[in-house]
Amino acid sequence: MRIFDPHIHMTSRTTDDYEAMAAAGVRAVVEPAFWLGQPRTSVGSFIDYFDALVGWEPFRAQGFGVRHHCAIALNPKEANDPRCREVLDLIDRYLAKDRVVALGEVGYDSMTPPEDEAFARQLELAERHELPVLVHTPHRDKHAGTLRSLDVVRESGLPPGRVVLDHLNELTVAPVLESGSWAGFSIYPDTKMDERRMVAILREYGTERILVNSAADWGRSDPLKTRRTAEAMLAAGFDDSDVDRVLWQNPVEFYGQSGRLDLGEALEPAAASFQGSSVLRGEPGE
């Protein structure tokens, strides 16, 4: 089974996670830029974070045979902080990079005027760089926030098929699919969505334009939820090609619109070359 996790925050995860993900079939990931739990206080913190997303994190992932790409953006929560907003002037340069396959996460947190401005301005950048967009839908007031996000996307003139609205649920999936955009689902241990409910949604809406992710980060989350969803699909009567469609082909198709996805040849962990104080310390059995 090959799995592409289209939304996971590996910066917050350990090498144990990379090992377990690789063993479970995860061969590629996209890490969208978001907040870190602890608020940033300056633009410099964003620069270091973005540099890690295009530098250290792909290197870390490669050691375990996982292909790492990222999405870059100012997230909606920190768009409200005047100390952080200036990063909008800098992300243009990151959006030009080879491994940046989308703009994201953008969208709404509390639906404030600064969030409106940052959202609209970044959609213009996505248009200029011909990048897909990952839209985070708010945890609070989700239904209204999702509809408002769809309006903003419509007004931007971006093709709806180049946008995914993420963290959806039973109440928000229909308007997103009807708009022509992609529907993303974050499978969490007990909050946003679980694998059983996900299977029911796939039964009702089919497998087209659906992305399933773990959105694993620094909170209670599980980087193997993509695999668990695949298993739940099989147990419910979906076949291998349905699973491959949802967990591999769909993310490849969505992010492939960037023209920058680099899945390369078969990825083998390059364990032997990374020792010492690097990521993989020593060799097994040494």
Partner: peptide, 9 residues
């Protein structure tokens, strides 16, 4: 800078 960044793809 932008030319240099796009060499991979």
């Amino acid at each position: 800078p932008s030319v240099f960044a796009g060499a991979g793809r």
